[in-house]
Amino acid sequence: MANVKDYGNAELEEKLSDTSYYTTDSNPQFLEDVKKISRTAANMCFQCGTCTGSCPSAPRSSYRIRLFMRRGVLGLEKEALNDPDLWLCTTCYSCTDRCPRGLAPTDVIMAMRNLAFKVDIVPRNFLKTVQLIYKTGHGVPNNDVNRAARVKLGLPADPPTTHSYPEFIPGIQKIMDFYGMKDKADRILAEESK
């Protein structure tokens, strides 16, 4: 663990904190879990950068897929799961297409998201999406503006999805309940608003 010095000044402590990487920072089980969930040899990344170079998110955000691969290799669980960038992958699979080691970085990200969800680390917008899917079957439900546009284009106001066939919503809810997604989203959002 990092050395802690007491400066008696929070700002100074933050600024001068020890950022060294200690062997105790590593949780080897994290790498094993990521490998198991992602079904890719995440330990074999050699940090060439092809993934980030292929990433459409990277030039427009602070998301660096290679950095998450590195954290996986080293077992830096906390650093990986607490980084909000984890949720910026668009899952386009460009990195997986081009990785010279034949790995699937996209699936590593998905595995890390699964692990983060297990310990309640999920951005609010994802939780709200969970609630919306549970309620309507849509992550982004239809709205009045859309309906008007659709009618104007000669389409029915609602698309032929759960919006038109709400009898299928209980099936979706059953799947989500199996994983406890809705309950978890409700609970975390309720705790946050307290």
Partner: peptide, 20 residues
Amino acid sequence: GRVANILEDPTTKNLTVYTE
């Protein structure tokens, strides 16, 4: 950084190299 891809500007025939 290993080169991810290369694109060509069809007018100038210059090439943009993408990597990290």
